[in-house]
Nucleic acid binder design. Sequence first.
RNA 1: GCGGGCGUAGCCGAACUGGUAUAGGCGCCAGAUUUAGGAUCUGGUCGGCGCAAGCCGGUGGGGGUUCGAGUCCCUCCGCCCGCACCA
Length: 813
Amino acid sequence: MKYDASAVEARWQARWEADGINHARDGDPRPKFFLLTMYPYPSGDLHVGHWYAMAPSDAVARFKRRCGYNVMFPIGFDAFGLPAENAAIEHGIHPYTWTMENIARMRRQLRSMGAMWDWPREIVTCDPEYYTWNQWFFLKMYDCGLAYRALAPVDWCPKDNTTLAREQVVGDERVCERCGTPVIKKNLEQWFLKITAYADELLDFSQIEWPERVRTLQTNWIGRSQGVEFEVPVRDRPGARFRVFTTRPDTVYGMTFCVLAPEHPLVDELTTVERRGEVDAYKFKAARASDIERLSTEKERDGVFIGAYAINPMNQAPVPIYIADYVLLTYGTGAIMGVPAHDARDFDFARKYALPIPVVIAPPGWDGAPLEHAYLDEGTMVNSGPFDGLPSPVGWQRIADEMVRRGIGERRVNYRLHDWLISRQRYWGTPIPMIYCDACGVVPVPYQDLPVLLPHDAEFRPTGESPLRYHEGFLNVACPRCGAAARRETDTMDTFVDSSWYQYRYLSPRHTDGPFDPAAGRHWLPVDQYTGGVEHAVMHLLYTRFWTKVMRDLGLVGFDEPMTRLFNQGIILGPDGNRMSKSRGNVVSPDEFVRKYGADTLRGYLMFIGPWAEGGPWNSRGIEGIARFLARVWALVTEAAKARAPETAASERELEYWVHHTIRRVTDDMEGFRWNTAIAALMEYTNVLQRARATAPAPLWNEAVRTLVLLLAPLCPHVAEELWVEHLGQPYSVHDQPWPQYDPQKATAERITLVLQVNGRVRDRVEVEAGITDALAREVALANPKVRQYLNGRTVADVIVVPGRLVNVVARG
RNA sequence: GCGGGCGUAGCCGAACUGGUAUAGGCGCCAGAUUUAGGAUCUGGUCGGCGCAAGCCGGUGGGGGUUCGAGUCCCUCCGCCCGCACCA
């Protein structure tokens, strides 16, 4: 009988669903395991990349359940976002309709994988049931000052008359993705979440086991730097001063110029009449240049002298003030001290404008010659007045102390991280629950008035402007404070708000008294294992850590980190080696492979092609190998249920070894998510069973076959269930059977191959008892004819015995 | 430019803390079965020389440490991924 994947898979999927065997119950006495996989965006169609992310995590879920855990493995949809709105604008489909139709299609595709998802816990973030709590969290943050409104530069498309999300600004030329117009920066009132309040805590990864790579990315993104901020007075302008930030106060005596960002508020005031023309021209140029151009290293650093001089507060030396676009208004104070000898950028700048480059930190063995490059390391302080002779790290502290003592500066920590701008001038998102009243100002929507529903009857303009801005029914509202006519905020929230806390909603998706049921929270939280792509390292994965810390401070949870362990799987590229995308036409759908080979084969193949963390280009050539493997397993088991060959005890010990050895390998591999080698081990085992079939005694044979099915079940759940229940006559369900345990004694081979080397080169291999003593191994080696031949009468200088592996005879002469 | 990762048969990839390089699969070759093809099964498959036993070479290149290096160190080459004037 041949294995009919599509019939078998559909049958078991229906039965599992009907029995609810994948629904995790809160009161279960087993230890809990909360496994979370990044939820998909409902773009319309599942591709094999989704399967690559999800099928192995389903194997984790199944393996953990077999190991005795009460596993929760939820699924949902990240349903707000731009593509839905673009579909509305381009094709006249309402974003809600577009999204829900896509979700319906993707649910069917996801179900065909046969994963043990807990569907009753499904969440859809565009449902008011979900986004109400986005608004609730926002108000909570507003109450404690973590949500605030401020003027901020945003990317603005002048043609479409709207702001753009970061993703909508494309190419090096930074153009609008819809109309190709170059975007400009525009200052707008925007809502921010104060993630910087948690910057230092977010740098602490001591409570989580996350990949080094993600920790590094987050650390760099946060970009903490420690230094001194101090005042620099302007010469001949009593009272005029600006502040600079430096991480190298020890180099302050080497300052030979200062640079302000072109947009610095003091520039106009300080620029002298004769320099004004050139300064204005430079400012104009800088304002037009995109960030990319501005920050490009290709471009030569340039700037303009503004005619004024600053006074070095430490030695009263006057230095010229420049503006240059390598100084950013958005970092530090928007002004720097130029120390060319000890900063590479300042060095280039000084070279270009023939400014002096005095050395103040002497490199070891420095002969007093001018520097060829900026010297950035530590050294001995010179030309630094009273600080001469000090090692620079000591001088660092002394100068900082001196600035503090004189009241002109203080120690400061700066971050590259900015507060999280969540305002989107978009329809398809969570409305920000704020009201603007002429009398009362900014007034939050009262909690009892939540949710602020997104109106369905929206008119989508080709310009891309948010329909909310023209929706009178939405806009007009009575001020909750004074009752006067007021207007709603029309901006919606960044969709990363949704994903910052979705894991909590899975606990109790219909809960109405809060974002989640605290009792369920005490049972399930935090997430034990999270899996997903590394592309979310600095956005989602940082935001969700921030959100959890806020929730902790609000008293909602009693821990600091949302997910204890994180695994980043690789990505499956299109057959052409590029990222799959509809526009490239290289999207590979799982459906045709499911139809042709079955879900188990596709799952197995995706797990077999290589390490899960690697990903790689899709190639369907090898899928036949997995199909053949499953067919062999099928034949092995279904035929084993029939008549057996007469018993012989010849290979009993060896078969027993293979049973236990394979349990050990597969168990270890599954714990480490090494699916490819787990499957390789099962293939080897299957090959061994095929050879042993004729001679194995029935009880051992049956154990061996049951073990094969039990080990295969987390990877290929349907075929394993079919074999277990229908052909081995075992109790439903294989997915509730305890994970097989190995006996370490039996998992050890009786005989081993001992490798004999002479001077590190393999000269012979001999079969010996596994427990051979070092002394005996040594004797065997020295007596071996091959070894003697290669010794060729030379003196044996040393014999190295690696127990259970090899003997290396070291000869001299 | 800085930081990180990687480089193993024709292809995807194994190789624990240095200890038989190439497990498992794809592909290919041969054989069995078959009217044939397909499917299935069995065997082979890193390169060179050899009838063979075997010998020699071999993990991007070069050098080093070691009894022994895919693994450790130095250096160069190539690919990928971050960050990109953060003062």
